[in-house]
């Protein structure tokens, strides 16, 4: 039985939401100076042809290499000092979303809860058998996608609420300053947004801002 000792961490990187849906094979990068361990993970991942695995044992110029390889998923040892190099990559490319799976040797309920709370998508106790690598990867991806969808829905809901508020404000300004009816004020905002190819909330925002600058009470 192959067991990987010690706490381990896996970082998955997805380029975009679209990539997750695409037919392209998943490109997985394993960063590990320990070739034996890397090959266990590699064996565990290779299966029917929907994944491609690259192993990077040499970590000099890591950032440049990752950009060249452009993986969807990165596996890296928790003890590898180059984890900070990966952080830099996340920093420069904020669009990168990443489910995280953590492999630990022993744990308690509090740790598991804390891990889930912190956004770790899969928390696996008792080391890592090669037979399980693939299912863990899949679990993490599924949970991550579900979590991302929830978050996006929440964000969308928040944005919609904020949008509605600012549109109401802009309408009030138009009604007062130009004597328009409410439907006409709304129609004017919509027409302007369409002509300028911008969101209605953006147009409303500019209007409220401008009214504020011009000293009208409405902008406040």
């Amino acid at each position: 039985m192959h067991l990987i000792r010690g706490p381990r961490l896996v970082i998955f990187v997805r380029r975009t939401q679209d990539a997750a849906m695409s037919e392209q094979p998943l490109h997985i990068l394993i960063i590990d100076e320990n070739r034996i361990r890397a090959s266990i993970i590699e064996d565990g991942l290779s299966g029917p042809g929907d994944v491609r695995v690259t192993v990077l044992p040499d970590t000099t110029q890591l950032l440049r290499r990752i950009v060249e390889i452009d993986p969807d998923v990165i596996f890296i040892d928790l003890e590898n000092p180059n984890r900070d190099v990966l952080e830099h990559m996340f920093e420069v490319s904020r669009a990168v979303k990443r489910p995280i799976a953590m492999f630990v040797e022993h744990s308690d309920q509090a740790s598991i809860e804390a891990a889930i709370e912190a956004g770790v998508s899969a928390y696996v106790v008792d080391g890592l058998k090669k037979e399980r690598v693939r299912s863990i990867l899949e679990t993490a991806m599924i949970r991550f996608k579900a979590f991302e969808r929830l978050k996006r829905e929440l964000e969308d809901a928040k944005t919609q609420l904020a949008d509605r508020k600012v549109i109401e404000k802009a309408k009030a300004i138009l009604i007062k300053t130009r004597g328009l009816s409410e439907p006409d004020a709304y129609a004017l905002l919509r027409k302007t947004a369409m002509n300028q190819n911008r969101r209605m909330a953006e147009i409303a925002d500019s209007l409220v801002l401008a009214a504020g600058l011009l000293g009208g009470e409405e902008g406040k």
Partner: peptide, 16 residues
Amino acid sequence: RETSWATVRDKLAVSH
């Protein structure tokens, strides 16, 4: 003793 700041932060996060 840890080897990266990322790991220090993550182990804080998961209450290790």
